[in-house]
Design a protein around this nucleic acid. Structure first.
Lengths: 258, 258
DNA sequence: GGGAAAAATTGGTTGTACCATTCCACAAGG
DNA sequence: CCTTGTGGAATGGTACAACCAATTTTTCCC
């Protein structure tokens, strides 16, 4: 378990908010705050720390968006247990700011997932393999429901991650899957489900046979195929993105600069 | 370039803050806000959106912590260009909340970096290889300065990531490096620099020879070695973490629950 | 023209007030 | 005794207003 968390201090005057976040990090690290546990009320916390509620709320909001805590009106603030969603928002902004394409996301999968599959072939428990098989059958059962089909497609891959036994890579690539899910769903509507199923089945069987090399090869085979399909779909569907609209809070748009 | 960013809307009543974040995401996605550009003043923005400055500041603070924007008093708020640091804070909390060990972080490197080295051997430009070589020489020149030595050690690996040509993996694993840097620095004090240098030199030469298989093997060799060293160091140094102290804002500690 | 002082701008912080939701205890009714 | 419901307390969400500190811009004097 890590603990070298708090960088002691920064000389340049930090925000109260930034300090508060560091404090919470520390409290979590030293176990004062337990996952699932309830935090004191905002008003109490603010007084304890000697800061205003506004500043405290800024820190809490950051933690909430990162998925560290959950806040519920009328109830309280709780420290989350796992943090599956913790990388989601940041990843989306990363994709935006660095202009990362779908193609590049698929390339990342292509770099890593074959190795994870090989590792899964080596390390998977019987239960792990059973889980991968269940997702495969769930895909078969959802042939006609694109959304569900894709969901189980991704869960199939994530089951392989789990079997590979490394949570870091597992969490990172689950986030990538999430970012790709919409486009994959669109693409799946023009691809024969049996085609996808065949490729997945080969991966499953390779892992079940504990054949690392074939697991790697079959995963590569599948992802190359998927990458090419997605890339083509992304080109055609790029206008789709433009159609996406958000609910704005006000008619007036902000002036970007001056 | 991605754009399928905004999930349209969520039916359950969202925070104003959450909505604001979505709005900014949209503004960035559609190019209304340009990297490096200046945002309107908080007071103007708040009025434009029809929200209070408090709520707006919560949203901005989230974006700032994630590295999307930078705020400077007396100056203004600017949209960052790249977002290298965007995953750092979240990653630290991820490590904390999920109780991820140094060992597991090194396992993640071990899973991915050999493949990245192989890809680098395949794709690296002459300039990429020169950069890797420069970092290697910088390591040699910093034999006696542990901190600098480790910095260039990590930059060496990141140069390989860059040469591999995938920014997603590059960014992700740079974050992991950052998390490991302190411990690696500690470890480096008990390891002969020439030992480390030899292992790095082998990787460099393999990439320069464009030998994918050897690049992979040499990287694995190095990381296995490093993993074992780090794991042992982490056990011995675990008390080090306990010595870490943070600057608290007030004497009173918050009551964790009730 | 140059430079220093003053004013305006901007993010940072605090405090207060009020709302909507949720929870909980206690009383009324069966 | 158990169920029901009702009102009050606690809690997070939002809005305003005021002031501070750092920075930039403008003004004014030499």
């Amino acid at each position: 378990m890590l603990a070298l968390v708090v960088p002691i201090a920064k000389r340049p005057k930090e925000d109260v908010t930034v300090k508060l976040i560091a404090v919470f990090k520390q409290l979590i690290a030293e176990g004062t705050l337990e996952p699932g546990g309830r935090l004191p009320a905002e008003r109490e916390l603010a007084e304890s720390f000697g800061v205003s509620r506004s500043s405290l709320r800024q820190a809490l909001k950051v933690l909430e968006i990162m998925g560290v805590i959950s806040q519920r009106v009328g109830d309280g603030t709780y420290l989350n247990k796992g943090a599956d969603a913790i990388l989601r928002e940041p990843m989306e902004f990363l994709i935006l700011l660095d202009g990362i394409s779908f193609h590049e996301l698929m390339e990342a999968r292509l770099l890593v997932e074959p190795e994870l599959a090989a590792r899964a072939a080596l390390r998977a428990s019987e239960e792990d393999i059973a889980e991968i098989g269940r997702e495969l059958r769930a895909m078969e059962a959802a042939k006609d429901d694109h959304a569900r089909f894709v969901t189980h497609d991704l869960l199939f891959h994530q089951a392989i991650f789990h079997a590979a036994g490394n949570r870091v890579t597992s969490l990172m690539f689950s986030v990538i899957h999430k970012s790709l899910e919409k486009l994959i769903t669109i693409t799946s509507q023009v691809v024969e489900p049996d085609h996808t199923l065949t490729l997945h089945r080969r991966i499953y069987q390779a892992i079940r046979k504990r054949d690392q090399e074939e697991s790697r090869r079959r995963t590569t085979e599948h992802l190359v195929d998927a990458r090419d399909l997605l890339t083509r779909a992304a080109e055609k569907q790029s206008h789709f993105a433009m159609a996406a609209r958000i609910q704005t809070l006000n008619k007036k748009a902000p002036r970007p600069a001056r």
